[in-house]
């Protein structure tokens, strides 16, 4: 796909044979990603249903158990993810304007922020696991009185864990984008993978925007 000469040929060599033109290919890819986002929302939706059902049954459990979560670090992580969302949006803007250097720098910052998020998450997890706040059966912490505290933390680990998996996948995608951008694949006429990955990353951000108040800020 990559060619170094900036000829007319290069402008079009990304169009696959079954599309009429570049525009149709771009619109198709974007619609495909939106359909995929629908599936992601419903997949997390399942966990939110579990969250809501248990919260409606045991509101006092949530009040009590969420005190174990550190709202400060949750807030820091929210800032980090929103910042990364902003840099992804800037990366897309750079690609649209043919500023490949800007694209690569913005992707680097995004990757850095995503790593920061995961590192903070790691410290949060290890602090809890050290206290014996493990999911379900392995829950041994005795600082909470509610008998179903293990269920709250099962839900907590499932939600943040699945979200963490998504962040990790996102980091992989960003690195792939950097590699491609360095090979000069992207330009203002073709930046579909950047756009698509951007949509994915914003979705990961949105899910965290809901997880943060629902898990950390109950009191």
């Amino acid at each position: 796909m990559s060619s170094t000469s900036a000829t007319e040929e290069k402008r079009l060599d990304h169009v696959q044979h079954h599309f009429v033109d570049s525009e149709q290919q771009f619109e198709s890819a974007k619609m495909g990603m939106w359909v995929f986002i629908v599936t992601e929302i419903l997949m997390f939706g399942g966990l939110f249903v579990a969250y809501i059902v248990y919260r409606s049954w045991y509101p006092e459990l949530y009040l009590e158990a969420s005190t174990q979560l550190n709202a400060f670090w949750g807030m820091v992580n929210t800032f980090v993810l929103i910042g990364s969302s902003l840099t992804v949006a800037m990366a897309i803007r750079s690609a649209q304007l043919n500023q490949i250097k800007g694209l690569i720098y913005n992707l680097y910052i995004t990757i850095g922020l995503a790593f920061t998020f995961m590192v903070i998450k790691y410290f949060e997890y290890s602090e809890k696991l050290g206290k014996g706040i493990a999911p379900g059966e392995y829950y041994t912490y005795d600082g909470l009185e509610h008998e179903k505290a293990n269920i709250f933390f099962s839900i907590y680990y499932m939600m943040t864990g699945l979200h963490g998996v998504h962040v990790t996948i996102g980091i992989g995608l960003m690195i792939w984008l950097v590699v491609k951008a360095k090979k000069n694949v992207f330009h203002s006429e073709y930046y579909t993978p950047v756009e698509i990955t951007g949509l994915y990353w914003h979705l990961v951000d949105i899910i965290w925007i809901f997880l943060f108040p629902l898990l950390y800020l109950i009191d």
């Binding site: 986002i37 629908v38 929302i41 939706g45």
Partner: peptide, 17 residues
Amino acid sequence: LFIFSLIFFGLMIGITL
């Protein structure tokens, strides 16, 4: 598409409740 995903999430939670 986006709105539909929210509607169906609403149905899932609403009917389960």
